[in-house]
Lab assay of single mutants.
Amino acid sequence: SPPKPKTIVLPPNWKTARDPEGKIYYYHVITRQTQWDPPTWESPGDDAS
């Protein structure tokens, strides 16, 4: 059997959903933003550039 996916701790107000093909995506319940990649926690002042 395939390994279980890691449990991802989502930031507040993010949910997972499935598209009609069964792929998992993520959406923000307030902004209605959707994305394929797991959302990352906002870390103020932490600039990755």
Rank of each mutant, 00 (worst) to 15 (best):
K23C: 05
E21Q: 07
P20N: 12
R32E: 08
E42H: 14
T40F: 07
E21I: 06
I8N: 14
P44V: 07
K15H: 09
V29Q: 11
P44M: 12
P38C: 07
R18M: 10
T16S: 15
R18P: 03
I30F: 05
D47S: 13
T16G: 08
W14P: 00
K23D: 04
Y26I: 01
P5F: 14
I24V: 04
P20G: 11
P39S: 02
D46A: 13
T34D: 01
A48Q: 09
Y26R: 01
A48L: 10
S1N: 15
G45E: 12
K6C: 06
P38Y: 07
P3F: 15
T34A: 06
P38R: 07
I24F: 03
P38L: 05
R32W: 01
P39E: 00
N13V: 03
G45P: 15
Q33P: 00
P20S: 10
P11R: 06
P3L: 14
E21T: 07
Q35I: 04
P2D: 15
K6E: 08
Q35P: 03
V9T: 14
D47W: 06
P38K: 09
E42D: 04
D37E: 13
W14Y: 03
S1A: 03
K6W: 05
R18F: 04
D46N: 10
V29I: 07
Y27P: 00
Y27K: 07
Q33S: 04
R32T: 00
D46M: 06
A17M: 11
D19K: 02
T7H: 14
A48S: 11
G45C: 12
T7W: 04
P3C: 04
D46W: 05
T34P: 06
Y26S: 01
W41C: 13
P5D: 14
W41E: 15
K4Q: 03
T31A: 02
R18T: 09
S1K: 10
I8K: 12
E42S: 12
G22F: 02
I30Q: 06
Y25E: 00
V9S: 10
P5H: 08
P20T: 12
I30D: 08
G22T: 00
R32Y: 07
P20M: 10
P11N: 05
P20W: 05
I24A: 07
T7F: 15
W41P: 11
A48M: 14
P44W: 06
P20Q: 12
R32V: 00
P39W: 00
P39L: 00
Y27H: 06
S49V: 02
S43H: 07
R18E: 07
R18W: 06
T34V: 10
D37I: 12
Y27G: 02
P3K: 15
D19I: 03
P38A: 09
P3A: 08
A17V: 07
N13G: 08
A17G: 11
Q33L: 04
W36C: 10
L10D: 04
R32S: 05
G22P: 00
S43V: 11
S1L: 06
Q35K: 05
P38M: 11
Y26N: 03
Y26V: 03
P2Y: 15
P12W: 06
S43T: 11
I8Y: 10
D19F: 00
P11L: 06
W36D: 12
L10C: 08
V9I: 14
P20D: 09
P12C: 01
R32H: 09
K6S: 14
S43D: 13
Y27Q: 09
P38S: 04
P44A: 09
P20L: 07
D46E: 09
Y26W: 04
P38E: 04
I30T: 12
N13H: 11
E21G: 12
D37S: 12
W36Q: 09
P44F: 02
R18Q: 04
P44N: 08
P12Y: 09
D19E: 06
P12T: 13
P2L: 15
K6D: 10
W14S: 00
W41T: 15
G45R: 12
W36S: 15
Q33W: 01
G45L: 13
P39C: 01
L10V: 07
Y26Q: 01
P12Q: 07
P39M: 00
